[in-house]
């Protein structure tokens, strides 16, 4: 249990990268990029976890209770929302590529220059 979340993070990165390398469809590649991004959220939260800690909200519990780290939660929170918009931008590039070249296969797209 001491290192298990970190092993899961490494597994998700490897699986996502494998999917990107062997993909034959631009949309599937973007989804594999989403998977790789999700591994960073898990890593952030795993680093800040305190055994026996509660969520850092003191509305109805004493402020002296043991709580998990709030800074990594703040980072992961803005990360999740912003990466969705960047993924949408990537998908709009994929749509543009389809309209210009008629295909979404990265192996065929690599042969077009400009």
């Amino acid at each position: 249990m001491q290192v298990f979340p970190f092993i899961v993070v490494a597994w998700i990165v490897v699986v996502g990268l494998y999917g990107m390398v062997t993909s034959r469809d631009l949309i599937h590649q973007v989804v594999c990029l989403i998977v790789v991004q999700s591994s960073t959220y898990v890593l952030l939260l795993a680093v800040g976890y305190v055994t026996g800690g509660v969520a850092p909200y003191f509305f109805d519990i004493s402020p002296r209770a043991l709580a998990v780290d709030p800074v990594v939660q703040a980072l992961a929170l803005t990360d999740v929302v912003v990466e969705a918009a960047v993924t949408a931008l990537l998908l709009s590039f994929a749509v543009q590529a389809y309209k210009r070249f008629g295909t979404l296969d990265p192996h065929e797209l690599a042969e077009f220059k400009g």
Binding site: I34, S38, Y41, L45, A46, Y49, G53, V54, A55, Y57, V68, Q73, A76, L77, V80, V81, A84, T87, A88, L91
Partner: peptide, 21 residues
């Protein structure tokens, strides 16, 4: 992992907005 804020974001974005896009 005791992070309800990140749960809300991930639910709204990863399970709803991103599949719709």
């Amino acid at each position: 992992f005791q992070a309800p804020d990140v749960t809300l974001s991930e639910l709204a974005v990863g399970a709803i907005a991103l599949p719709l896009i």
